[in-house]
């Protein structure tokens, strides 16, 4: 019989995931593992984990892994990649890590056109610390540090990191995807593969922003979270390719 699906070798098969029910981190790590396997570079990969729920994955992945101080993943990855240019290096960061405490490191690495990949998982809330307001929290969305909901007069507006980085000249590829439907999961995998391939081709900075859910801290069950994601999150964070210089270069 033809085998059409198997577990990726990019994730250990002797551990049980600690992610909450309905969390999409597991899906994203699975996709990353599948892409690394397809590119046959598992043994040449280094991931730099941000601080937050994503840190749970440091034990799960089967390739080299380090943990950065909160927000510093892009700086740590700069050091790793510059001294290890023939290895594939990717950071994995949440919205608090990448867009709040790590904003300077993210912007500067993108602006230098560092030849590594950023996987940015945006669920609009701080997960591990328990539901505090993130730079990507939606207007009106409740958080433990914005109990009446995000008020733009006090808290400002959600930050759109792909669009912000699109103001810079250096980045190669910026795409926003989601994992809320099988079709979007497939698109996310395609985007990750493209971002990694860009790095292997030496094309510079790529970021895939993946809009995901956080049922635990949204206070919704996993199914209701999918509806919220579709109806609210994707309205604020529209999916699609924001920048693709690799395609431009091919066209020339």
């Amino acid at each position: 019989m033809e085998q059409v699906y198997k577990r990726t070798k990019g994730i250990r098969d002797d551990m049980v995931s600690g992610f909450c029910p309905g969390c999409m981190h597991g899906t994203v790590f699975k996709l990353i593992g599948e892409v690394l396997e397809e590119l046959d570079i598992l043994e040449k990969t280094v991931t730099v984990q941000g601080v937050g729920c994503c840190g749970l994955a440091m034990e799960y992945v089967t390739y080299d892994c380090t943990t950065s101080p909160h927000g510093r993943a892009c700086a740590v990855a700069t050091g790793v990649k510059r001294t290890n240019p023939d290895r594939l290096v990717y950071t994995y960061q949440g919205d608090g890590d990448l867009a709040s405490i790590g904003l300077a490191e993210t912007m500067s690495a993108a602006n230098r056109g560092e030849n590594f990949t950023v996987i940015f998982v945006n669920n609009g809330i701080y997960g591990m610390t328990g539901g505090q307001m993130a730079p990507t929290t939606l207007i009106g969305m409740k958080a433990t540090t914005a109990p009446a909901g995000r008020d733009p007069k006090v808290h400002g507006y959600p930050m759109h990191m792909c669009e912000i980085l699109n103001q810079l000249t250096a980045p190669c590829y910026l795409e926003r995807t989601s994992c809320n439907t099988p079709a979007n999961v497939r698109k996310t995998k395609k985007a990750i593969k493209k971002a990694f391939q860009n790095q292997l081709d030496g094309k510079g900075f790529s970021m895939v922003e993946i809009v995901t859910s956080c049922p635990t801290n949204w206070g919704l069950d996993p199914m209701a979270s999918l509806d919220f994601l579709e109806e609210k999150m994707l309205k604020e964070f529209p999916l699609g390719v924001i920048r693709d210089k690799s395609r431009e270069e091919e066209a020339v």
């Binding site: 730099v48 380090t66 950065s68 101080p69 510093r72 700086a75 740590v76 990855a77 700069t78 050091g79 790793v80 990649k81 510059r82 001294t83 290890n84 300077a104 490191e105 912007m107 500067s108």
Partner: peptide, 26 residues
């Protein structure tokens, strides 16, 4: 070798933290 002017002291030490993790004297 590689020289990077970091965007801050915070970033610079973290670049060193990363570079040293590849075994490079940093």
């Amino acid at each position: 070798g590689v020289f990077v002017q970091g965007e801050s002291e915070v970033a610079s030490i973290n670049m060193v933290y990363g570079a040293a993790q590849t075994g490079t004297r940093a």
